[in-house]
């Protein structure tokens, strides 16, 4: 009973913070920030299914973020606002097909080569997007992507993104605690033993990769609707790199760690960006210090204090 209650606490905080944004009056700027946070939060949480959970470092998840954004952006731009929703529904399906292909190729390789190959695929996608001007408008990106009337306006679109992201994150949370999640943790710790308990490491990794990539693509699709403006840089390695950084900052060992990392990162960027033009430099320094002081991320601090107080309360962990 106690345990169930403890599981609910992060969800209550999640709903208070992100649901509360709907009631901030005249806070257009903050709603806009919150929109970026939940969408990147979905990206980072999906990424962590591979990274923190399964122990697979993909340096190319931006590929799926960009893919989702471009499918949605190009469809709505070419066929009209009504196609925004249809495109958003098609995004995970396309991502499933693409990730099965890329995953089957890259997961056959050992860890380091997996990381390199995912990076290579994403850079390739970036190159194609830049060069194929006729389809993607290259370096100009796609601007003024239309949305259906119902989704127009910051608050409306935030509400919509919040619902979609929350449903996705709930799904990933269930996965985190599921038997399949158990297998992924096993693969991270000792893949040999997973094999010898009768399970295919490759197939479980592939499903994790497909799920992670599909949710990343949904996040990309949602991003296309924030300002109606997307750019090939969504595919670029710096995008993948930022997600890795935010995930480590928040803590890769807890389910909500990545969202915390994203929140801090986006808020910092907003604060620092307004006061100095060297913001990326300043953020780099802050991140470096934080990661050095808290190697297990923000979540790590929380669990450390959690344990500290639990001990004080006289609880015994192990009989």
């Amino acid at each position: 009973m106690m345990k169930r209650y403890k599981d609910l606490v992060p969800w209550i905080i999640y709903f208070l913070v992100f649901g509360g944004m709907l009631f901030v009056r005249g806070g257009g700027h903050y709603v806009h920030l919150a929109m970026q946070i939940i969408i990147l939060g979905l990206f980072a949480t999906s990424f962590n299914v591979l990274f923190g959970k399964t122990g697979l470092l993909s340096f190319g998840q931006a590929l799926f973020y960009g893919l989702g954004a471009y499918i949605t952006g190009m469809a709505a731009k070419s066929f009209g606002p009504d196609y925004f929703m249809w495109a958003l529904l098609a995004v995970p399906l396309v991502a499933i097909v693409v990730s099965i292909l890329l995953g089957a190729l890259s997961l056959r390789l050992s860890d380091v080569y997996f990381t390199m190959l995912t990076l290579a695929f994403a850079q390739l996608a970036w190159g194609i997007t830049i060069k194929w001007y006729g389809l993607t408008r290259g370096d100009d990106g796609i601007q003024a992507i239309p949305k259906p009337a119902l989704l127009t306006g910051n608050v409306n679109y935030y509400l919509f993104s919040f619902l979609v992201v929350t449903a996705c994150i709930y799904f990933l949370w269930r996965l985190d605690r599921s038997p399949f999640g158990s297998v992924l943790e096993g693969i991270r710790q000792n893949s040999l033993r997973v094999t010898f308990t009768g399970m295919s490491v490759f197939r479980h990794q592939l499903l994790a990769y497909v799920i992670s990539s599909s949710f990343t693509a949904i996040a990309g699709g949602l991003y296309a609707g924030i300002d109606g403006s997307i750019h090939p840089d969504m595919f670029y390695w710096t995008m993948s790199g930022s997600i890795i950084l935010m995930t480590i900052l928040g803590g890769m060992s807890g389910f909500f760690g990545p969202i915390i990392g994203v929140t801090i990162f986006v808020l910092l960027e907003d604060m620092v960006g307004r006061s100095t033009e060297y913001w990326s430099f300043v953020i780099g320094i802050i991140m470096l210090i934080m990661v050095m002081i808290f190697p297990h991320g923000i979540i790590g601090i929380a669990t450390y204090f959690g344990k500290f107080f639990a001990r004080k309360g006289g609880q015994v962990d192990n009989p």
Binding site: F171, S178, P179, T197, G198, M199
Partner: peptide
Amino acid sequence: LSYHGKNWNFFS
């Protein structure tokens, strides 16, 4: 979990 064939269950 593997013995009982539950390893693909990702929702319960």
